[in-house]
Computed example of a mutant assay.
Amino acid sequence: MPLSIATWNINSVRLRIGLVEQFLKLHSPDILCLQETKCPNDQFPSKPLKALGYEHIVMHGQKGYHGVATISRLPLTELVERRDYCGVGDARHVSVVFRHGGKSIRLHNFYVPAGGDEPDRTINPKFGHKLDFIEEMKLLHADGDAGISSILVGDLNIAPLEHDVWSHKQLLKIVSHTPVEVEGLTEVMTKGAWVDLMRRKIPADQKLYTWWSYRAQDWAKADRGRRLDHIWSSADLDPHLSEITVLREARGWERPSDHVPVMATFDL
């Protein structure tokens, strides 16, 4: 049975709920993980999503900042976790467990701190916070729950590979592609035995972006993108991956997010 999971930094779910509805109607993923929802749980716009058949919604939100939400057509179990990374009270993680194709799967939904503009923690506390967050993520293992497979998605705010950015050389000193961030995220993946599913389908020597800055007058023509959004899994799910879709055209929708949806489809 096919299983489709999408991730999207929506940059305010209330402002862009119409785009979420548009995406769900066009692509109908089984589960959609949203980041940067920017609203408390009691103000999350659940009604239009439930009207489309997404009756199972787990949120971890806060007023005006951060926030993640996982919306699903599939039933979710009671095994919900909301981890407070770095102990500062930010709503940046939620995980759920669901069953599909005879498997139990834990789905992690992350919004990693952006890290500010200056890649130096001695003068930029936001960058230090990002590095500390990544350090704590190294404790998360894909096989951490016995008998449960794992998928990790979200805006990880790091483009780790050379062709995950429009210019490797020019972005080496730019937050999201600095060597210390890349090394940290690579360790999260290797220590946790995670598989980078996007690069399983799209070779590492090909350009791959999920984010284009609002600052560009013509984002499509300039095409100065970065791959900040990721989909990983435990090794047992890797052979079941059938497709990765990066919905580039969503960047050109009316009043868009600066990120676009990414979707993985599995045959389970």
Rank of each mutant, 00 (worst) to 15 (best):
Met1Cys: 11
Leu3Ser: 09
Leu3Tyr: 11
Ser4Ala: 12
Ile5Tyr: 00
Ala6Val: 04
Asn9Met: 00
Arg14Phe: 01
Arg16Gln: 05
Arg16Pro: 00
Ile17Ser: 00
Glu21Pro: 04
Gln22Thr: 14
Phe23Cys: 08
His27Pro: 06
Ile31Arg: 09
Cys33Arg: 00
Lys38Phe: 02
Pro40Trp: 07
Asn41Leu: 06
Gln43Ile: 09
Phe44Pro: 05
Phe44Leu: 04
Ser46Glu: 15
Ser46Gln: 02
Leu49His: 01
Gly53Lys: 06
Tyr54His: 04
Tyr54Ser: 03
Gly61Asp: 01
Gln62Cys: 13
Lys63Ala: 15
Gly64Asp: 15
Pro75Tyr: 10
Leu76Cys: 01
Leu76Ser: 01
Leu79Lys: 14
Val80Ala: 05
Val80Pro: 09
Glu81Pro: 12
Arg82Asp: 05
Arg82His: 06
Tyr85Ile: 15
Tyr85Trp: 12
Cys86Gly: 03
Gly87Gln: 07
Gly89Lys: 14
His93Leu: 10
Lys103Ile: 08
Leu107Ile: 09
His108Asn: 14
Val112Lys: 01
Asp117Val: 05
Asp117Pro: 00
Glu118Gly: 00
Asp120Trp: 01
Arg121Asn: 09
Asn124Gln: 01
Lys126Leu: 01
Phe127Pro: 05
His129Gly: 05
Lys130Cys: 08
Asp132Arg: 13
Asp132Lys: 15
Ile134Val: 12
Leu139Tyr: 12
His141Met: 13
Ala142Asp: 01
Asp143Trp: 13
Asp145His: 13
Ala146Gly: 03
Ser150Tyr: 06
Asp155Phe: 06
Asn157Trp: 06
Asn157Tyr: 12
Pro160Phe: 15
His168Lys: 08
Gln170His: 12
Leu171His: 02
Leu172His: 12
Leu172Pro: 05
Leu172Thr: 12
Val182Ser: 04
Thr186Pro: 08
Val188Phe: 13
Val188Met: 07
Ala193Asp: 13
Leu197Phe: 05
Leu197Ile: 10
Met198Phe: 09
Lys201Gln: 11
Lys201Thr: 02
Ile202Ala: 05
Lys207Arg: 15
Lys207Val: 12
Tyr209His: 08
Thr210Gln: 07
Trp211Gly: 03
Trp211Met: 04
Trp212Glu: 06
Ser213Gln: 03
Tyr214Met: 02
Arg215Cys: 04
Ala216Asp: 03
Arg227Ser: 14
Leu228Tyr: 10
Asp229His: 11
His230Asn: 13
Ser233Thr: 06
Ala235Asp: 10
Pro239Ser: 03
His240Phe: 14
Ser242Asp: 15
Thr245Ala: 15
Glu249Asn: 08
Arg251Pro: 03
Arg255Lys: 14
Pro256Ser: 10
Ser257Trp: 07
Asp258Gly: 01
His259Glu: 07
Pro261Met: 06
Pro261Glu: 05
Leu268Thr: 11
